[in-house]
């Protein structure tokens, strides 16, 4: 097993577009969950409507920018819909409704009925050429080597990565200013105790609704960039597992922390790629004997993700960077 190669590959993965897109998307979830305490189990739906909104518009002949706007507007609408269906009810309804919304949307775009727009299970491809036409980076191969193991990106990859990491930084700065403002203070108060916030004249419903919408829009941007990178959207990418990845990142970085999602996304995707590399090479070298087949490597990784999430919640609910007494998830 070539540990160095696996590690260098994982380093490459940790700054890749996937990590950037998840960082961006998780900032949205962090606003909803970390700051406002809203347990949104359908965050993937924000990414879905963002990516599909864009892809459908381009596929119908519209310009890419219009597509992005439509995707973002659809995500805002989704956040609003979540709000009106659940926010006046008990908080735990939100988990069930958001999870269901995500699955309903996935079923819908998958169905034959939506085929004229979504191309059902086949998905939509090649809708982001325009984005790459804007690429100011000259053709070439950029990067360096660590002990003859390359970390390299093409000009296309570098372009979409830069945009996405840039957006993630902007979103983080926005998040920071929002949370330092009186608006953020009120959102935190709503998270801590709704009744206390109400008794001080705060319209709890409005704040939650705003957090849901902003979070959904930021989440959609992550989905949009993920779509742009692969030039491919298809329904079965948007399964609840994507939401769980985002949750793992938010909790790993410390729910409610400002730079947490970005840092945690880098760490998370490093671990992800690293596990992948180790499991795969263990498999090709036959360490598992007959126990597993090649298709199992992703499954083993998901099992480990599940265990990891449980352990994180049990042993370090404040995440890597949080302080124990500030943990949002603990206590009653």
């Amino acid at each position: 097993m070539d540990w160095l190669e696996i590690t260098v590959d994982s380093l490459r993965g940790s700054v890749s577009l996937v990590a950037a897109a998840y960082a961006l998307s998780s900032i949205g979830l962090n606003l909803q969950f970390g700051s406002a305490g809203l347990l949104n189990f359908g965050h993937v739906a924000s990414m879905l409507v963002g990516a599909y909104g864009m892809a459908i518009v381009v596929d119908l002949g519209g310009p890419l920018l219009l597509g992005v706007l439509v995707g973002v507007a659809a995500a805002a609408l989704l956040g609003w819909l979540w709000g009106i269906t659940t926010l006046r009810l008990r908080a735990d309804y939100l988990t069930v409704v958001t999870l269901s919304f995500g699955e309903i949307l996935r079923f819908l775009i998958r169905s034959n009925w939506a085929n004229p727009f979504t191309k059902s299970v086949y998905g939509i491809q090649r809708f982001a050429d325009e984005f790459y036409d804007w690429n100011p980076i000259p053709d070439g191969d950029y990067g360096f080597e660590i002990a003859s193991n390359p970390i390299r990106f093409s000009e296309r990859q570098l372009w979409v990565m830069s945009v996405c990491w840039g957006l993630a930084i902007l979103a983080t700065l926005l998040f920071r200013s929002l949370m330092r403002s009186p608006w953020g203070r009120t959102v935190k108060a709503v998270r801590e105790d709704e009744d206390a916030a109400r008794s001080l004249g705060k319209n709890v419903y409005l704040y939650k609704q705003q957090a849901l919408i902003i979070g959904s829009v930021i989440g959609a941007l992550g989905g949009i960039l993920l779509g742009i990178e692969t030039q491919n959207v298809y329904p079965d990418f948007y399964i609840p597992l994507v939401t769980i990845n985002a949750f793992a990142i938010v909790i790993l970085g410390g729910a409610g922390s400002v730079w947490g999602p970005m840092a945690a996304s880098i760490i998370y995707w490093f671990l992800f790629e690293w596990l992948d590399g180790v499991i795969n090479s263990a498999m090709t070298e036959g360490y598992f004997g007959l126990l597993f087949e090649p298709a199992d490597s992703g499954r083993i990784r998901t099992v480990l993700l599940g265990i990891g999430l449980v352990c994180l919640m049990v042993f370090r609910p404040q995440g890597l960077f949080g302080r124990r007494r500030e943990v949002i998830l603990g206590g009653t």
């Binding site: 347990l39 189990f41 735990d92 949750f247 083993i300 599940g306 999430l309 449980v310 603990g330 206590g331």
Partner: peptide, 19 residues
């Protein structure tokens, strides 16, 4: 551990068991 924490544990546990 609060209800939110427990729910998240159950999500992780579900993933673990399912796969």
């Amino acid at each position: 551990t609060g209800v939110v924490g427990l729910t998240l544990v159950s999500i992780g546990f579900s993933l673990f068991l399912r796969y």
